[in-house]
Nucleic acid binder design. Sequence first.
DNA 1: GCCGTTTTCGGCCCGACTGTTTTCAGTCG
Length: 564
Amino acid sequence: MTKKDIIRLLENIAVYMELSLENPFKVSAYRKAAQSLETDPRSLSEIDKFDNIKGIGKGTNDVIVEYVETGKSSVLDELKESVPAGLVQMTKISTLGPKKIVKIYKALEIDTLEGLKNACENEEISALPGFGKKTEQNISKAIDDILTRPERYAINQVLRFRDLVEQYLEESGHVVRFDVAGSARRMKETSRDIDYILIVEDVEGFTKNILEQEFVTETVASGDKKLSIIIQDDMQDINVDFRFVTEEEYYSTLHHFTGSKDHNVKMRQIAKDRNEKISEYGVESNGETLTFDSEEAFYNHFELDFIPPAMRETGEETNLDIGEIVTLDDIKGDIHMHTVYSDGAFSVREMVEACIEKGYEYIVITDHSKSLRVANGLDEKRLTAQIKEIRQINAEYDEIDVYSGTEMDILKDGTLDYSDDMLKELDYVIAAIHSSFQQTEEEIMHRLECACRNPYVRHIAHPTGRLIGRREGYPVDMVRLMELARETNTVLEVNANPMRLDINADAMRHQDIKLTVNTDAHHTDHLDFMKYGVATLQKGFVKKDQVINTMTREEFREYINKQK
DNA sequence: GCCGTTTTCGGCCCGACTGTTTTCAGTCG
C-alpha cells in the first residue's frame, strides 16, 4: 500500500458522499484530507501520526488507520451499499452534478451511462420536474463528449491549441490585451481546458466575431463577463474560456483565474488574517476595493514576493524564500543542443548566433554519438572534425563561449559509445539512454550507474526518457539515481522540451542535487523551450545555485577546465 | 469533517451563467 492508495480512498469516499447528498463541507473535508496527504513530502512509512497533518482530524484519521491496518474501509463499504457504482460514472458528465444525478436515479432508477443516454433519447428526462428539453440535450451531448474527448491534454497539444487562439486574438483587432491563465499559464504537464483573461472594447462584437471563426465548433456559455467555447484542431477539441475584465480588475482577475485553487485558498487565508478579502475583482480592505497594476504589486500588498505561476500549486509556496528559486533570467547558457552534424536543422554557426541573440554567455554543442544511426550520430572522425570547427568558431565570437560536447548513447549493456580517449578531447560530455526502453529497472539502473561512474560524463540527459502523453519512458529508480548523482558528482537534466520535462517536480522538491535545464534544441525555435524547463524546476522549488547553467561565463569556464 | 491568537461553535469563496422557473437551484471554476 502506498500514499496514493489512501488518497484514492479518501477521494472515492468524497464522491460517494456527494452522491449521498452529504453536507458539502464534510465532502470537501475528505477531499482536503486527501490533498494534505498528497502535499506532505513524506512517504507512507515515514508518517507516524496522520492526524498531526493539517487537514486530517479524528474522522479521516480513523478511516486512514483502518485502511492501512486492514486494507478495507467500512465507511466506503457502507456508502457503496446505498449508492450504485454507476452514479459515480455519471459525475463525469459536465452540467450534471450530484443533485441532478440523484433526482434522476430516484425518479427513474437509472444507474448507468447507457441507461441515461437511452432515457434522454426516449425524452424521459425532460418529463421530470425541474428538467427541460435543453437539459436533456445537454446531458445527451455531454455523454457523447466523455466517450470521445480525452480528459486532459498534454502540454504540447495545449500549445498547438494556444497558437490557434492567440494568433486570432492578436490579429482580430478586438482585443486590447490578453493573457492565458489557468493550468496552461502554470505550465502544468496536462490541462483540461484553456483560460484567457482579456480586455476587449466591445464584448458583443468580439463574441460575434470569434464565434464565426472556423476553429470554433460550439458555444458552451456566453455572457457579459465570460465566454466559453469548444475549439477544434485537426481531430481534437478542447474547451476555451474567456473572461472579459476592465483595466483596473485585470491583474486581480488574472491572479484569480491562474489559480491553482489551493493557491487561491491559501492567499485568501492570508488576506483574511489581515481583515481583508480577495475576490477576482480586487482586494477588499477597510470597505474599499484595491486594485493593482501588476501581479507583483498584488503579492507585495500581502508582503510576499512575486510567485511565478508555475509554483502556484499547493499554497506551500507562499512560505518559501522565493528569491532563491531559479528564474528564466538566471539561465546563462544552454548546454544541450544539436546541429546538422546529427539530426538538428541548423549549422553550428547558426545555433551560436541564435544563442547570442538570446543573450547567452556560453553554449555547448552536443550532437548524437555513432550508435544512434537514425539521428546520423557522429563517429570519431566526424566528431574530431566538429571539435575543430567549434574551436574555430569559438575564436571568432567575443560575446559567447562555444564548447564542444556530445550527447553520447549509453548502450544496452552499460558501455559508452565513445572511448575515454575520445571523451577527453571534448569539453563536455552528456550521456543518455535512447535504446532498449523495455529493459528491467535493474538493467536500466546498471546503465545509468555506468554512465555516472565514468569520469568524463558530467550530465545525464532526459533521465526518464518519457514523452508526455505519448510514452511512459523506461523504468528508473529516481531516488537511487539521485543518490548516484550526488555520489559521483553527476548533474541531472530537466529537459525543457514540453514533450519531456523530466524530472518530475515532486522528485526534485527539497533534494540537494545538482541539476541543469536545457532545451535539447534541434531547431533555433526550440531554444525558446527554456521557459518550460525553468517552470518545471520552479515546481520542484529548485534554487538557482543548484542549477549549473546559472553559472556566469567565468564560473562555467572554470567548471569545464576542472575535472568532474 | 476540520479548524481555532475573535477558539469548542459556527463558518467553511463566491460570482457567472444556464435553464427552468416566475425568483432561484444547480453547476462550474
